[in-house]
Each structure stands twice: as structure tokens, then as C-alpha cells.
Amino acid sequence: MTRATGIAATAFLAAALQGCATSTYYAWGAYDEALYAHYKDPQEREAFVENLKKVLLQAEQEGRRVPPGVNAEYGYALYEEGQYVEAVVYFQKERDLWPESRTLMEKMIRNAERQKPASPTPAQGPAGTLEKS
């Protein structure tokens, strides 16, 4: 057992030292590259959304947990594109997956829900029934 762990430790160390681990604990996909590309070309907003989506899909395909922050980052990218309803879905996913994110995600969910396009009918009560035809 010591030999196996020794070999495993060396392999991990080698991979870590090379800066690109061959097998990471989480399925990151091209997450850091998506962030880098976003900072390089902030105008390419659709590409950022797409790249983050790919990370999510890859984790799903591999049957692995979506890593910390990725659902939230995708949710926020959608938020900045005005897709508030979808954004909430992903903030909720992050909150449910990572309890530590609860405070921030609930804040973001509240923000997103406030942003929802205002209803055309004025002064609705909680029942929200149609007051104008």
C-alpha cells in the first residue's frame, strides 16, 4: 500500500507541478479558459455564455458534480444578458449544490427577481389577477 500511495503521490505532485493536472478532483472542462477569454474579449458575451454552458454540459455528461461557482457564474452571465428567469434557475442550482453559497445565491435570486420585466397591469394584489383586459 505504501508503494502505491508513493507512486500516486509522485504522479499527483508531477501533475500539480506541471500546472495542468491530468485528473482533477472536479470536472472543470475549459472553465478557466472561458474566464480568460471573457476578460480578453469582454464584448464576446455570447461566447462567454456558450463556453460556460459547455463546462456544465461536460460535467453532466461525465456524471460528475458541477464544480464550485460554475452554476453561479453561468447564472450571472445569463443575468447580464437580461435572462433573469433562467439566471434564477442556475443560482438555485448553485445554492442547492453548495450550502456555503446560500447567502450569496439568495441575494442574487432576489436581485434577479426584482429585475423581472414589470407586468403591464398596474398595482396588482398578491393574487395577481388580470385587472385589465
Binding site: D32, H38, Y39, K40, P67, G69, E73, Y76
Partner: peptide
Amino acid sequence: VDAPAYFLSTLPIPVAERGYYVFPVNL
């Protein structure tokens, strides 16, 4: 001037790989 943003993109993975929850850096 590009360094800070580019470098920020490299931080989440190594820290999260140590087993901590890392908040979404861009958000």
C-alpha cells in the same frame, strides 16, 4: 494592465481543488 483579470481566471481551480467552496470570481 491585462494581468489582473487574466490572473484572476487562474485562481478558482487550484483553490477549489484543495476542497474548499470557492465563490464565482467573475460574479
